[in-house]
C-alpha cells in the first residue's frame, strides 16, 4: 500500500513546502501560465530554498521570480518569457549578465517536455517525438537522441522520462485525501503528478469526498499520487484560474516594468513576498476588492457547474 493512502493530507502551505521542497531538489509546477502555482513560488522564495532544478514546459512570472530571487540552479524547459507583455526581465539579467547568478539552461520544445512527462507517468524510460528534429535544439541538448525508427526507418527524436522530486499543482478543488479536480485545460498536470516522487496540491476550495464523487470525471489527479493538500484561495494571482478569476494583466504589466530594474525588483519582492507572512497577506496588499472584481470578470465568461 502506498504511504499516501490516508484520509487527511491537509496542511498549511508553509508546512507543505517546508516538508517536500528541499535545497538542490528538482521540481515542476502544474498549470500552463493559467492555473500557475504563484502562491507556492512565493513560499519557496520566502523559505530561502536554493539550487532548484526546474523541469517544465512554459513559465512566465513564476520562473522570473524564482530566478530573480536566486533560487534556481538549472532549467530544463521550453519557454521563459512574459507572454504578450514581453521578455522576462530577471531571466534576461541572469542569462545575459549573471545577475544575481547564472543558471544552467537546457532547451526543449513544449511537445518535447510533454513527452518527457508522458514517459515519466508511464514509468518507461523515454518517449519518441517528431519535434525538434533538424534544429539547434539537438545541437545544444545532447540528451535528445535521434535514431531511425527500428520499424519504418524514419528519423525520430527520443527524450528521457522526467521524474522530478516534487510537483506542485494548483487546481480548482480537491478533497482532504487529495483527489484533485480541474476545470479548463489540464496542461501536463495528470502526468506531472504521476511522474513526480511527491505531489503537493494547492486548491481554491476543499470539498467533501462525496462532492468529488458526484463528478469523478473531473478528477485529473487521484489521491494515491498526492502527498499534501493545501487550500490557497487566489493562489494563482496575477495569473488566471478558470472559473474563479481572470488574468490580472495590469498587475503583471506593473510587475514587468518594475522587474526591469534590479533594485525595483528587490523592493517588489520585499513588499509582496518577504514582508507578507502568507498568501492571505499578499492578497490583502493586492486588494481583496480587486481580486473580487477579477472573479466577477471570470464568472461573466466561465462558471463551474455546482
Amino acid at each position: 500500500m502506498n504511504g499516501n493512502n490516508n484520509a487527511n493530507k491537509q496542511m498549511t502551505l508553509k508546512d507543505a513546502i517546508g516538508k517536500y521542497v528541499k535545497d538542490d531538489c528538482s521540481i515542476t509546477f502544474g498549470g500552463f501560465i493559467g492555473r500557475d502555482c504563484v502562491a507556492a513560488v512565493h513560499e519557496i522564495i520566502r523559505q530561502g530554498i536554493k539550487n532548484l532544478t526546474v523541469i517544465d514546459d512554459s513559465k512566465t512570472d513564476m520562473m522570473d521570480l524564482l530566478v530573480g530571487a536566486g533560487a534556481v540552479k538549472r532549467w530544463e524547459g521550453a519557454y521563459l518569457g512574459y507572454g504578450a507583455i514581453g521578455l522576462a526581465p530577471n531571466i534576461r539579467r541572469s542569462v545575459e549578465k549573471g545577475i544575481p547568478a547564472k543558471f544552467e539552461l537546457e532547451d526543449w520544445s513544449n511537445a518535447g517536455i510533454s513527452m518527457r512527462y508522458l514517459a515519466g507517468s508511464l514509468n518507461i524510460p523515454f518517449m519518441a517525438t517528431k519535434s525538434m528534429l533538424g534544429t539547434d535544439i539537438l545541437k545544444y541538448n545532447q540528451r535528445i537522441k535521434v535514431i531511425n525508427d527500428p520499424y519504418a526507418g524514419e528519423p525520430v527524436a527520443l527524450v528521457p522520462a522526467a521524474h522530478p522530486d516534487v510537483a506542485v499543482i494548483h487546481v480548482q478543488r480537491a478533497d482532504a485525501m487529495g483527489n484533485a479536480q480541474v476545470w479548463g485545460f489540464t496542461g501536463n498536470d495528470e502526468n506531472k503528478a504521476r511522474a513526480a516522487k511527491h505531489t503537493i496540491i494547492t486548491c481554491e476550495e476543499i470539498v467533501a469526498t462525496d462532492e468529488i464523487r458526484r463528478q469523478g470525471n473531473m478528477t485529473a489527479i487521484p489521491f494515491y499520487c498526492v502527498d499534501a493538500v493545501v487550500q490557497v484561495p487566489y493562489g494563482c494571482h496575477p495569473q488566471s484560474c478558470y472559473g474563479y478569476y481572470a488574468y490580472d494583466v495590469l498587475f503583471c504589466g506593473d510587475y514587468h516594468e518594475a522587474a526591469k530594474d534590479r533594485e525595483q525588483f528587490l523592493s517588489w519582492l520585499d513588499r509582496y513576498v518577504f514582508e507578507s507572512e502568507d498568501h492571505a497577506a499578499y492578497c490583502a496588499k493586492v486588494g481583496w476588492s480587486r481580486l473580487q472584481n477579477l472573479m466577477t470578470m471570470e464568472r461573466h465568461f466561465n462558471r463551474i457547474p455546482g
Binding site: S58, L80, L87, S109, N110, A111, G112, M132
Partner: peptide
C-alpha cells in the same frame, strides 16, 4: 551568454 536571451521554443518548434 547571449546578447539577448529570448523565451525559447515554447510550442513554436512543434
Amino acid at each position: 551568454s547571449p546578447k539577448v536571451r529570448l523565451p525559447g521554443s515554447g510550442g513554436g518548434n512543434d
